[in-house]
Amino acid sequence: MPESSKNSGEPVDSVNVPEADAMDGVAGDSAAEATELVVAEETVAPAVVVAPATVAELVEEKPPAEATIRLEKKHPLAIRWMHWVNFPVLFTMIWSGLLIYWNDSDNAYRHPHAVYRIGIGSLTLVRMFPPWFWKAINAPYHVTEGLGYHFFFMWIFAINGVLYVSYLLISGEWRVLVPERRSLRDALQVTLVDLHLRKGLPPQKKYNGAQRIAYTAVIVMGLGSLVTGLSIYKPTQAHWMTTLLGGYEMARWEHFWLTMGFCAFFLVHVGQVILAGWNNFRSMVSGVEIVPAAKASLEEERRAR
């Protein structure tokens, strides 16, 4: 899943007019000046009797010089804030969750939890987690801290998530994020390219098929964590929800594996961001990415449909 700076397959079909709102600096000013000059001469020309030489000069007037690059407004401010707020909050949720889970991971003794493992039937390959891991993260006997932080930051995680999804819906940004009909095929292609098994990325706009699927999936996983978390938190009062999820122990299992899913997402995401490079990473902080001037604007994709 390459981040969106890998857009070699982008169709170059649009005019390269610099976006005025993305270029409110020096570049924008000079471009605007050039445009004004042309307009003025065209308006003035018919009214004045000019020498043939001047006419010839006017006929031959060249278009104004344009930059070969421009700044693309890639990530809206709200999305950047919510993305970066989510990072430490989700980290705190996972860390405090591990402190809680240590309680029920009595591997060496008589009650290893049957569900937090990789195995079939009575054959267990891996039990989560080995004692050295618990020791390394200083988990033993920090349960109250874990519970305290978990039930504090759950609010921030939930509120941030609700705001994020609301923003996607209201702003129309969801159009660039949710998978399309061709996303699955694209995602396979992108994955094969990433694994150096084939060449040629499919055309993409803001996100490629793999990104659309991954980013949408991680939002759905966030919702899953809220739902499974609530059904573990209130399994008596919200028992219908717990029952729907397959019962209390299943809800815990689901909650745990969703967390493992976040960890896997995190590893792949960070790896791909590193591969995609500085320009792409910077755009998640500053909001803008330097793109070839000829590249189609994302605004069109945002407005599409």
Partner: peptide
Amino acid sequence: IAALDAAVRAESGRR
């Protein structure tokens, strides 16, 4: 053009 590109980069740097 080089100046314009530099201006775009400068704007990016500012942001």
